[in-house]
């Protein structure tokens, strides 16, 4: 097992070295590195408010992963008559050439996502895109304002006021009794 793996490793190392030499040569010759392959995997469907995991893989010409490369993610959008690419964020490829963006779906329609590799000394720029069809119509942005205290509402105010005014009414009744008593006393 070990032996075999070692063999593969040396083979891979050799291949990379050759590739690097080739790259170096070609870049010197052409002024730019070869365009690596960039693929973007995104779920075809998504729900509004859900966090989608968008995965891009950067592979060299020979299909070997490119690690440590910065991939930037964009989404073309238009807002108030201004169109442009919204920068969503960036991620660095891991040893298998994979860069992952976790992205909350906020637009409820077709969301196009573009992954872009700007290129470096070894590789030329690369780009790939994918589209997510977003479903749903939930209101996402809510602000939690205020504190709701049960019972602390207009009825409390009404109860207090009602209490006071009912005393006023009682007094009114008492005054009318005084009046009635007056009529009675005069009759006697």
């Amino acid at each position: 097992m070990n032996h075999r793996r070692n063999g593969i490793h040396t083979l891979g190392l050799l291949a990379i070295l050759v590739l690097l030499a080739l790259l170096l040569f070609s870049s010197v010759a052409q002024g730019a590195g070869p365009e690596p392959g960039l693929t973007l995997q995104a779920p075809a469907q998504g729900t509004l408010g859900q966090t989608a995991t968008v995965q891009s893989t950067l592979l060299a010409l020979g299909g070997s992963p490119v690690s440590g490369a910065t991939i930037q993610f964009f989404s073309p959008a238009s807002f108030l008559s201004t169109s442009g690419e919204v920068f969503l964020g960036e991620a660095v490829t891991d040893s298998s050439g994979v860069a992952v963006l976790r992205y909350e779906l906020r637009s409820d329609n077709q969301v196009e996502i573009i992954a872009r590799f700007a290129g470096n000394a070894s590789y030329g720029p690369a780009e790939s895109s994918a589209t997510i069809a977003v479903q749903g119509s939930t209101q996402l942005y809510q602000e939690d304002i205020g504190v709701r205290v049960p019972g602390l509402n207009v009825w409390l105010l009404a109860a207090i006021l009602g209490g006071v005014w009912s005393v006023y009414f009682t007094v009114f009744v008492l005054v009318s009794r005084i009046a009635r008593e007056g009529v009675r006393a005069r009759a006697i």
Binding site: V175, S176, R177, I178, A179, E181, G182, V183, A185, R186
Partner: peptide, 9 residues
């Protein structure tokens, strides 16, 4: 209001 100063009043 017809005050007569009676006890009840």
């Amino acid at each position: 209001v017809g005050w007569q100063g009676t006890e009840k009043q």
